[in-house]
Design a protein around this nucleic acid. Structure first.
Lengths: 129, 129
DNA sequence: CCTTGACCTTCCCATATTGGTAAGGCCCAG
DNA sequence: CTGGGCCTTACCAATATGGGAAGGTCAAGG
């Protein structure tokens, strides 16, 4: 299987497959013509990576999860620890974004939004602090 | 006032002040020695930029807000429109992160987290889809 | 007057992730 | 043998920020 088919089967773009290889997330065999050659096993790895990315894991975490997944003697404690640490990071980021949204929504609520130039949003951004 | 003082007064690092200048967000006068020279007005601009960044506005939005702020004949409608569009983007991103966190928290809740290798988190990442 | 240290300059690199593009090689069908 | 589709590497783009090198400037103090 060449990279195009591996991409179609895994849902990971060929571009990203090459990138993941460049950063050492997966290794690909090479055919006599220099083309990367993939087996079903590699597609499974690519899908694993994609799912982890869909959950927002940074690639460094993906690397560790992948290693744990392939280590059949692993302790699930380590996986759970990684996952929960990531959950905390996600929730923290989400809260930060929501705080920004709430502040801005509050400011916007007091802005007339008409042809006049008066605007509490700009006033706030221009505050001295 | 040199860049160091402008940085201290505005809360924007000298590094970023130079960057904002490079992308055309603000212009600095130059002294005879080649040093950037800032006036109180520039510090106000830098503070404006910092506040907008604190609310998560991307620099392109900051550029538009800055232009609106400096245009005394502006309509507040445009500012409000920009702000609310950004609120929507922030909330959408926050929801996306929360969905990830919830999925992962759910998976982690079913993971024993002990010395055994069984782990629903890894099982889910390895699912065929 | 000269040294020292703080501050300034520009330029390059790094982060993390993904996409685009360009120039060229390989392979199969017509 | 040619065309089109796939592959290769390599460079550039975006987001925003920081680190550091190499060298110029300035003020204070011996």
């Amino acid at each position: 299987m060449n990279i195009g088919e591996a991409a179609a089967r895994s849902g990971v773009s060929a571009k990203m497959i090459r990138h993941y290889e460049a950063i050492g997330l997966l290794a690909a065999a090479r055919g006599a013509n220099g083309y990367r050659v993939y087996a079903a096993r590699d597609v499974a790895v690519l899908r694993f990576i994609r799912h982890a990315r869909d959950l927002g894991f940074p690639l460094e975490d993906v690397r560790r999860l992948l290693a744990l997944w392939q280590d059949h003697g692993r302790a699930s404690a380590e996986v759970k620890r990684l996952a929960l640490a990531h959950v905390v990071a996600l929730e923290s980021k989400a809260e930060s974004l929501q705080r920004m949204a709430a502040s801005l929504r509050h400011l916007a609520a007091h802005c007339q939004g008409d042809q006049r130039p008066d605007c509490p949003i700009l006033d706030d951004l221009a505050r001295k602090e």
